[in-house]
């Protein structure tokens, strides 16, 4: 039998597009025949736009979502810019899912703190919606969501944020770096939300994703709170060109982020220079 070529994308349909902010757009993608992507929360896909190129994009929908999967794309490069021009019914190339995400099995019975900075919410939303799925929620302890954004105008998934805030089984805290009109909540970087948390130090894990500068400070803060390194999970951003551990662009010391990550237990990468 002919071995499958790992570089050839599948052609998928865009079934829904929603502008979220000035820079970010939401896409709902249907694979051929409505096949499930079968991803873990935190995994990514390589998305191709015909004629333009390919870029790694985090999957944002729950592991349990049927028939299609979702992503949110920030307009920063050639591919993402070209995606802005696409319409419902247009085609995209999809490869993946790639790498390792959050192993929710390991989180069962535990309290989960989710710390999302800006667009870092995109992959973490996949985790959130997986663990708060009605059939799943009872498997986990407390679910605490910390979300930080530059301004309230840059909030993603606003409707969902409201539901999370309302739900009794989710502790939701949000902050903005800069107050704009109409904002009455917290102002300050995301680390300011951490000291006030009351955590069961022995039975909590934290999942972190955000801009590169955020990690160092969030980790310091969680450590000073008393969490151990093995309780921390981070999702790293790198230039993942091939997605399959060959091209070398995402390599941090001896690991390929696209293969072993992008989600790592912090103990695994804390000794890696260049990681954070």
């Amino acid at each position: 039998m002919e071995a499958k070529n790992i570089y050839v994308p599948e052609v998928a349909d865009i079934i829904k597009i929603e502008r979220m902010t000035e820079l970010e757009t939401f896409y709902d993608i249907k694979l051929p025949g409505g096949r499930d992507l079968g991803h873990e929360p935190g995994q990514f896909v390589e998305v191709s736009v015909f004629g333009i190129g390919e870029a790694p994009i985090s999957v944002s929908s729950s592991h349990f979502k049927k028939g299609s999967f979702e992503m949110v794309v920030r307009n920063v490069g050639n591919v993402t810019q070209a995606m802005q021009k696409l319409k419902v019914g247009d085609k995209l190339g999809i490869r993946g899912p790639f790498g390792h995400g959050f192993k929710t099995k390991d989180f069962e019975g535990k309290d989960i703190v989710i710390i999302a900075g800006g667009i870092g919410l995109v992959p973490l939303r996949s985790l959130i919606n997986t663990i708060i799925d009605p059939a799943e929620r009872k498997k986990y302890g407390r679910v605490i969501i910390l979300y930080g954004s530059k301004t309230k105008e840059e909030f993603l998934f606003r409707g969902e944020l409201e539901t999370w805030e309302k739900r009794d089984d989710i502790e939701y805290h949000v902050t903005v770096d800069r107050k704009t009109s109409g904002w009455n909540g917290n102002v300050g970087v995301i680390t300011t939300l951490i000291p006030g948390l009351k955590l069961d130090l022995h039975n909590t894990i934290a999942a972190i994703c955000g801009p590169p500068v955020m990690y160092k400070f969030v980790i310091l803060s969680l450590r000073s709170k008393g969490l151990k390194d093995n309780q921390l999970y981070v999702s790293l951003e790198r230039k993942m060109k091939c997605g399959v551990g060959k091209c070398g662009h995402c390599q941090i010391n001896n690991i390929y982020v696209c293969q072993e990550g992008p989600v790592f237990n912090y103990t695994y990468i804390e000794d890696l220079k260049e990681a954070i």
Binding site: G51, I52, E54, C247, G248, H249
Partner: peptide, 18 residues
């Protein structure tokens, strides 16, 4: 063996390659 990947479309045609 590290490599970079890029797309190109032949000017004025529908033919593209990566």
């Amino acid at each position: 063996y590290c490599f970079d990947v890029s797309d190109e479309v032949v000017l004025g045609t529908n033919r593209g390659s990566r």
